[in-house]
Write a protein that binds this DNA or RNA. Structure first.
Lengths: 169, 169
DNA sequence: GTAATATACTTGTTTGTAACAAGCAGATTG
DNA sequence: CAATCTGCTTGTTACAAACAAGTATATTAC
């Protein structure tokens, strides 16, 4: 840690917090925690992973996850829609993953324009490996939690995500 | 329209899930939910905000939040450390914020090399305004939640963040 | 007191992620 | 068959962030 003043965030601003905002303070705190969580999950959470010499970047990891969640091959446009990303972005990502052999691409038999993407055997292995790592980190983090706290957390998060997707859209 | 399969893929793969243990599945699900949450918070959550004609990007918002959390002026290096970002990144960010008048910069009286950054009056206003917007979105999302669920969520998230920072570091 | 080193930044450059726009080729419809 | 729509690719741009190398100030060693 730097010997210098480490931000911290003490309470007690010189001007007393106006009474009216009590409920908002709680929301602020939650919002801040959520941002922090997001950063932890995104940055530290997907450390550019080397799996058996294979380099997957963050975006690649998510793409693999999506492909894994879909059962059969997925069209690019569906993939992009499900990731809420621009088609062009996913197009390039997919090309890269195909190049390094983690994803397979076949022409759609019913539609000459479309591509059908799927995890390759190797892609499945790599994804599983990355997932294992992340799972273990999470397991470590939650080690001291009670079973009920854990399931409560999972439920809350799931609900929050679905509410947010429905709402902040 | 071929009504393309929209990923989805609910349960019932013909082959029973050959995966690992049941407990790991729960962790996987949680991990997935957390990633999704992170994406929602980061992307949709900080919509490039226009405040009275002022454009703050995501990075700028976090910088302002950090500066606000610190009481006095902060040195660049401390700010970078607290944000877990490279000094150079924060240096450019700070310069931009200074240029648009949201942050003030003075020389450190005790150290000719160092700069001391703080929110300007305008910066404080803008931050407050952005914060208000985000808070309202969150409030909307949580509108249907019970008070106890909400506080439970807040507590869980806060604990998770602190555990993660201690652990995944 | 000056040389060596350490610290606090700044600037140059590269990489990763994403968007928008324009285009091409296969598909659909009048 | 022509017009249009759709699925995808490619060109370009932008931004966030990293690493490397530089500059200027501070500290330490001698």
């Amino acid at each position: 840690m730097p010997t210098t003043t480490p931000i911290e965030t003490p309470a007690a601003p010189p001007a007393a917090p106006p009474r009216a905002l009590r409920g908002d303070d709680a929301l602020d705190a939650l919002e801040r925690a959520l941002i922090q969580l997001a950063r932890v999950m995104i940055r530290a959470g997907v450390p550019d992973v080397l799996v058996e010499g294979e380099h997957i970047d963050r975006a690649g990891y998510w793409t693999l996850v999506r492909l894994d969640e879909a059962e059969g091959p997925v069209r690019l446009s569906d993939l992009a829609a499900s990731m809420e990303l621009d088609l062009s972005t996913v197009s390039r990502q997919a090309r890269h993953l195909v190049e390094v052999g983690l994803v397979t691409r076949q022409a759609d038999p019913d539609d000459g324009r479309a591509a059908r993407l799927a995890l390759s055997e190797r892609g499945r292995e790599v994804l599983e490996s990355v997932r294992r790592t992340r799972r273990d980190v999470l397991r470590g983090t939650l080690a001291a939690w009670g079973a009920d706290e854990r399931s409560q957390l999972a439920a809350s998060i799931a609900r929050l995500v679905s509410d947010m997707q429905g709402c902040a859209r």
